[in-house]
């Protein structure tokens, strides 16, 4: 039950993009088509789960026992960068088709603040076990994918609409995102 509440909380109530403002760059950058948005969502799900699993293990068994918490930022960003590189190499060998599908999105993820953001957030929650952390990462990533896919759908529709000249491009996208965030606020009292 606890886990179900956490999943609903991360996906709908505290959506990582629309409520926590993490990962806005890919949210605005790769959301012009639903298909690419889906690819990005899948890549983030994959990397975020792995990264959070590895970083929380490192935090719990290396950084905390050795009293090196001040190295957290450096250690985590390096782990994520290395992990993304590794995932890329492994995918290329094992599943070329998946590599083709995720290909261009993988390198972008290193600088996606959502991945580092979730990795740091879970270390700040004192009672989180490694299982909790991983589940938190999975549900945050699902929330990311949900938001970016909905937003891509909206932007596909926006292309057919006549937008005032000054509002074209980024401004109208941001305002649409604002209205989407307002819609997600409706979930506020769900859990």
């Amino acid at each position: 039950m606890e886990y179900i509440v956490m999943i609903i909380g991360c996906v709908l109530v505290n959506n990582i993009i629309l409520a926590q403002f993490l990962g806005i760059c890919p949210f605005l950058g790769v959301s012009t088509k639903v298909n690419t948005a889906l690819g990005m969502g899948a890549a983030v799900l994959f990397v975020m789960t792995l990264a959070t699993l590895v970083t929380s293990v490192i935090q719990q068994y290396v950084l905390v026992p050795l009293n090196l918490q001040f190295l957290q930022t450096i250690a985590f960003i390096l782990i994520i960068a290395a992990l993304v590189q590794m995932v890329e190499i492994i995918l290329k060998k094992i599943s070329p088709s998946l590599y083709q599908a995720l290909g261009i999105f993988l390198p972008l993820i290193t600088t996606n603040c959502a991945v580092l953001g979730v990795a740091i957030t879970v270390t700040q929650k004192a009672d989180f076990t490694i299982l909790d952390s991983t589940l938190y990462a999975v549900s945050s990533a699902i929330g990311f994918a949900l938001a970016i896919v909905i937003f891509a759908g909206l932007r596909e529709q926006l292309e057919l609409v006549k937008v005032p000249k000054g509002m074209q491009g980024v401004p109208i996208a941001l305002i649409t995102a604002g209205i989407l965030a307002m819609a997600f606020m409706g979930f506020a009292n769900l859990v």
Binding site: L18, F21, L174, G178
Partner: peptide, 11 residues
């Protein structure tokens, strides 16, 4: 709240 941030930055 969150929506205001997007809207203000858009404008």
């Amino acid at each position: 709240l969150a929506p205001g941030a997007f809207i203000v930055m858009g404008f």
